[in-house]
């Protein structure tokens, strides 16, 4: 039987009076890439923020390696092995590339491995090594996205959550980005990928879940969803 690295059980999330996520259950198997799909406002970002401890679920359970994470604060979630690359990169633009990476390994637990983690990040993203002393705010969009991912893997996550990593990138860079995600996955990092680029996401994903107005409306193997006519009709035409 496959091992569930992450499991959400009947999760509800409300922002004030507005409920953004309704009764969502899904799981991420260890070592896989899972795509979380859906249109704008479907609740994908809310779910990632809830997993990483920025938001609290009002109902339901989130288990990581069998352990509940719903009461953990964001820094504790990082500590147990979940890194979250937020939408829009959210780099520390006034700090240098290297300083951003240093802060990626900020928790005490990861500091002893800093050099090793830095070597790995530079190996995956050689351009960052060249740019290491540049201010992060001066990088190009693609470089910024690479830095955001590199910063997240400095904390040696077992689960990496990526929110719209291809947003705003040129088609060529989008392709590179998805190849990089696959490379990371080959290095035993489990990936939870939120994407609007549904076609590309499903091509690399083992499993996929489709959210619509805060509810899971479809799920299946990546290639099954890719071939599903309903998905084709609903999303590919407009977003693919």
């Amino acid at each position: 039987m496959e091992k569930h690295l992450l499991e959400l059980k009947r999760v509800d999330v409300r922002y004030g009076d507005v409920q953004a996520v309704w009764d969502v259950s899904f799981h991420v198997n260890d070592g896989t890439i899972v795509a979380l799909l859906g249109a704008n406002g479907a609740g994908k970002t809310t779910l990632l923020k809830t997993i990483s401890g920025i938001l609290r679920p009002n109902q339901g359970e989130i288990l990581f390696s069998g352990r509940s994470v719903v009461k953990l604060r964001p820094q504790e979630v990082v500590d147990i092995g979940i890194s979250h690359v937020p939408e829009g990169r959210r780099l520390f633009t006034r700090l240098s590339v290297l300083e951003n990476l240093e802060l990626g390994a900020y928790p005490r637990k990861f500091r002893p491995f800093f050099e090793e983690s830095l070597g790995r990040a530079y190996q995956l993203f050689p351009i960052l090594k060249e740019r290491s002393h540049q201010k992060a705010g001066l990088l190009s969009g693609g470089e910024q996205q690479m830095l955001a991912i590199a910063r997240a893997i400095m904390a040696r996550p077992a689960l990496l959550m990526l929110d719209e990593p291809s947003l705003g990138l040129s088609p060529l860079l989008v392709k590179t980005m998805f190849e990089l995600i696959r490379t990371l996955n080959d290095q035993k990092v489990t990936i939870l990928l939120v994407e609007q680029n549904i076609h590309q996401a499903l091509k690399i994903a083992h499993d996929g879940f489709v959210l619509k107005t805060g509810k899971v409306v479809m799920s299946g193997k990546g290639n099954e969803l890719l071939a599903n006519p309903e998905i084709q009709k609903a999303y590919m035409g407009t977003l693919g």
Binding site: I54, F92, T93, E102, L103, Y106
Partner: peptide, 23 residues
């Protein structure tokens, strides 16, 4: 200092700072 850089980072974006493990 690393702690000083964390303060700078948090001044720019507290949520992003929390996501890299800065309290």
């Amino acid at each position: 200092t690393l702690v000083g850089k964390a303060v700078k980072a948090a001044s720019e974006d507290m949520e992003a700072a929390a996501l890299v493990g800065i309290s």
